[in-house]
Design a protein around this nucleic acid. Sequence first.
DNA 1: ACTATTTCCTGGATGC
DNA 2: TGCATCCAGGAAATAG
Length: 291
Amino acid sequence: MPELPEVETIARGLAKRVTGDVIESVWLGSKPEPLKSPARQIAATLENSRISGVRRMGKHIVIDLSQSWTASRKLRGKSSHKSSFKGDSHSTRAQWIVHLGMTGSILVCAPDAKVEKHTHLIAKLASGRELRFVDPRRFGRLSVSRNGDFEAGGFEPLDIDREEFVALFRGRKTPIKSALLNQKLLRGVGNIYADEALFRAGIRPRRQAASLTRERLERLYRSVQEVLKEAIALGGSSISDYVDADGDEGFFQLQHRVYGREGEACLVCKTPVKRVVIAGRSSHYCPRCQK
DNA sequence: ACTATTTCCTGGATGC
DNA sequence: TGCATCCAGGAAATAG
């Protein structure tokens, strides 16, 4: 389940492998697609575009696209005044936005590689390779922004400053766990890292957000950043079948202190880890260490 | 304006 | 062994 550290890892891997390549053609599966933009618009935006970079925003992968000069000519005809700007690709900036949902993955592979079940999009690259979007559970979403102005919602957890972070929870009656998962507040924190950050901060997931003191929230701020940074350094958490763009697994799952450890001894005090359901999400915590 | 609940989807695990 | 049922999760939609 890709959250911020996994998406960061994937985006970095993709950036390394496909930056500079050109998407020559796009195939979209015929079934109802997990798309947010119309299929025609996605294909039209991607085709003949050069990948100028890949980055992460929250849990979204943003693939920056620029129309190459030759592609412009091919599309618009040689008389098009649009393509006569001085070789500056910035004016045809667009974005391909990928949300992996639960089970989505982006693969870079050879064209003769077996097409996996649940492949929804294949982009043929000028280098001869293919970029494929596979998502069995179809919670992932593809979209495009034609003018490159995609906005992902709340604050980046690793960029937000302490005061902004504290202010996020002011007056919120919702459980702190739910607030951490709310992408309109913070973008990129998911179930695993919310539980892990709350454990490190010594806060129970059900605690009403507004009831936390400034000191508690400052500790949570440090915990969120710490856990995300450590996870990124280890390539994310490989739960179920997550692998990065190179097919490598992450190792942060070995560092989980509460997530997925229901009934096991707390690593600090040996009390069995509890699991409760908050907002439909399983939440793990130590009843002794977290108040 | 908020908050809580339901829905989408499929593979893997569990139960009888 | 086989079939049914449950569960996981992010975020949009819906309900309160």
